[in-house]
Design a protein around this nucleic acid. Structure first.
Lengths: 352, 352
DNA sequence: GTGAAAGCGCTAACAG
DNA sequence: CTGTTAGCGCTTTCAC
């Protein structure tokens, strides 16, 4: 049934041109006259020909394989929606540009992770890799990969100044600021911040934004309580418990991602608190989690799919030979107002 | 910096044997004496040599690329945790067995989807593909792929008798039966079933199991209300609204997956119903969603990661030349009791 | 047991 | 503008 697949030589023969010309047409090369190009394309269609990616790669065209490196605690499957959205965006773009995407989930706390990533990426002959937090800021990893000739792009790298990879993401500082301002405008004055692990620079920037909003409102740092977790539902719950044990307790919680916010919500429910009447909770990311929980989360939308797609475009352009300094492409974010954050109870309504 | 990667010839030279011998060692071929094998392995280690997968594949060793075909409404990202768990399981197994996994998300309702899948899989020269519902039961797709020489495995194919692909999954009929029995034991008598799309055979089997449990309890079909959705949070909510508008309304809802159960939960909350006091809700799959919502869902656990891994093993064994009829590997499921389902209110407590 | 030779299908110089 | 000539790094016959 499945007769041998047509090769480039079959196409060449059928269209009566040389093999090289076919190759040129296939790769949008220059120096092909329109009629010839058309003839070749016709033959390609007639034979239902597809290039053999392995052969192309062997011959020097590059493997056209990209790797997406995702942090995950494997069995905990944290933040699966975040990863999925990124992956979906990346995979779609890959499809368009003819790349193959392989996804690697790596435990973020595993000390051997770095070596493991470099290992896979290079043994698969990946031409490029997309790093996600917290790997986006891992200099060792970045250099290891670079040394092996792998082109890189990072999702939400921290980067205050020194850009060591091309990156894409939102303005995290502004995102943090905006969500905090939203809460402040609702009259909240004692706010708890549920952060992520310390190495996660973009989440740190969110916190800086929150702090700025507090300052702008004339509030001292004391009214902001900060605790760090690890972005999981579980840690969101844990931290919330501690926050609620304080007195006076915060009237609003800003979480570094939606999963932690969901954890916060659960603990609130378990304690019989009404959200948002007794406690306001805000998330970050606007993953489907924020719509699935009750009440739906007020959160900051990150265009994750667009970020994944853009990351592919960035590496692809470097693979294509683009030169120049590393840069960061900022995509827009928005505060999505749902029902988990409301007017502060005991405080007089806010400034502005 | 990055000097040329060592090739098989470098290894051959260093170990003082022929290229063929090295290849034999690398592929566990026969006819290599132990001391020679050891020498070769030493050289491999010394040079930090890795086979070039593209070259191997060109030469005839097979591409060692597997595709995982996932249904998704793309922008809706339904059931992302389900897909992630499967992918994670598959990807881990691939890593062990040296396969490369590429993931394809395809809109399940797109009429062109089938062609699109066949297209990608064959143009990437995948040796095998793993199908997930509802593609697991798509005869056209299965045949199309087979015709191109692609080996297959399916996650939760429907299969009442005719097995056209190797499959792995739980006993869905029993799963449906068990969760229904749990609810019946809690005293529920009017039960609503929120099903998935009709073509999703494994979900249909769940429903059959529910029906059997009802019959065993001596209940007529009338006390079971069935409506179909599409496995999304949104459709779970929609159906729940309609179910709650009936009178008398069901006291318990069994959902075909956790996402729909989360949707049901939201509607219940929005209507001011207490769960489980006023309404019991059960999910299916035991994805992280079930722990994230409030109250956490009583659901049926499917070993999704194990299923993904097993699917890879199944295709891989077929690629390896395994013959024999298609079969289905049943993995164990369990009812996970959490807090979304409780004692029925108005009914007298049940028959054992 | 082991090695030499012949490609797999393609791209990349290099000539015309 | 187009074709010819070499390989890319590996697996496979097929001899030895």
């Amino acid at each position: 049934m499945s007769t041998r697949k047509p090769t480039i030589d079959d196409v060449a023969r059928l269209s009566g041109v040389g093999r090289t010309t076919v190759s040129r047409v296939l790769n949008d090369g220059p120096n092909v006259r329109e009629p010839v190009r058309r003839k070749v394309l016709a033959a390609v269609a007639a034979l239902d020909y597809r290039v053999n990616p392995q052969a192309r790669s062997l011959a020097g065209g590059g493997s056209r394989v990209l790797a997406l490196v995702l942090a995950s605690d494997l069995d905990a499957e944290p933040n699966s929606f975040y990863a999925s959205a990124l992956e979906l965006g990346a995979v779609r773009e890959c499809l368009q540009s003819g790349y193959q995407l392989i996804t690697r989930h790596v435990p973020q706390d595993d000390p051997a992770a770095i070596r493991q990533i470099v290992e896979t990426v290079s043994s698969q002959r990946c031409q490029g890799a997309i790093l996600t937090p917290p790997f986006s800021d891992n200099a060792e990893l970045i250099e290891g990969l670079r040394a092996r000739g792998v082109h890189l792009a990072a999702i939400s790298p921290g980067g205050d100044g020194l850009r060591i990879v091309d990156g894409v993401g939102i303005d995290d500082e502004a995102g943090g600021h905006d969500i905090a301002r939203h809460l402040l405008n609702l009259g909240h004055r004692r706010i708890g911040y549920l952060g992520g692990i310390a190495g996660h620079l973009s989440a740190e920037r969110r916190l800086e934004g929150v702090r700025r909003a507090m300052r702008e409102t004339g509030l001292s740092g004391e009214t902001l309580v900060v605790e760090r977790g690890d972005f999981t539902f579980r840690s969101g719950g844990l931290i919330t418990s501690r926050m609620l044990d304080r007195s006076p307790r915060p009237t609003a919680l800003i979480c570094a991602n939606d999963d932690m916010a969901a954890g916060a919500l659960s603990v609130a429910h378990a304690r019989g608190l009404q959200v948002p009447a007794d406690l306001s909770i805000a998330g970050f990311d606007d993953t489907p989690v924020s719509a699935i929980v009750w009440p739906p989360l007020t959160t900051v939308h990150q265009p994750l799919k667009a970020m994944g797609g853009e990351a592919v475009r960035l590496v692809s352009s470097r693979i294509g030979g683009a030169q120049g300094e590393c840069f960061f492409r900022t995509l827009p974010h928005t505060v999505v107002v749902r029902e988990s954050a409301g007017q502060a109870q005991e405080t007089t309504t806010s400034t502005t």
